[in-house]
């Protein structure tokens, strides 16, 4: 990615982020969002983030880019997150699993 592309990407994401934070406060005060939109917005987070997780594991190399140790690390992180509801515990479990497997394999 060129410097110009990177900088423009950061600025555009920043502008969209600010707009989503400020838009209704500045222009639409008191007007409630349609309930269907609120319903759909609720699932943007889980859908985008889980797709992003899979994509980052593949690293732009298609399905073959997903390594077994990476799947193990993410799975350990997910299990820890379910059990503890704690992000630090989740991250620790995932990375420790990764390091142990890299040492053993």
């Amino acid at each position: 990615m060129t410097t110009a592309a990177a900088l423009s990407a950061v600025l555009v994401v920043g502008l969209i982020t600010y707009s989503s934070r400020a838009g209704l406060i500045l222009f639409l005060a008191e007007r409630p969002l349609p309930s269907a939109l609120v319903r759909a917005l609720r699932y943007v987070g889980p859908a985008v983030l889980s797709a992003l997780t899979v994509n980052l594991l593949a690293g732009g190399e298609g399905p073959s880019g997903v390594e077994v140790v990476e799947i193990a690390a993410v799975s350990a992180g997910i299990i820890a997150a379910v059990l503890t509801r704690n992000l630090i515990a989740s991250l620790t479990a995932g990375m420790v699993t990764l390091w142990l497997l890299l040492l053993l394999l």
């Binding site: 983030l49 997780t53 690390a73 993410v74 997150a81 992000l87 990764l98």
Partner: peptide, 18 residues
């Protein structure tokens, strides 16, 4: 140390917590 895997672990954890 493969710290590049950390973002994926982080996002997976965030999904679960959310």
């Amino acid at each position: 140390w493969r710290l590049g895997v950390a973002p994926a672990v982080m996002f997976a954890g965030l999904v679960v917590l959310g």
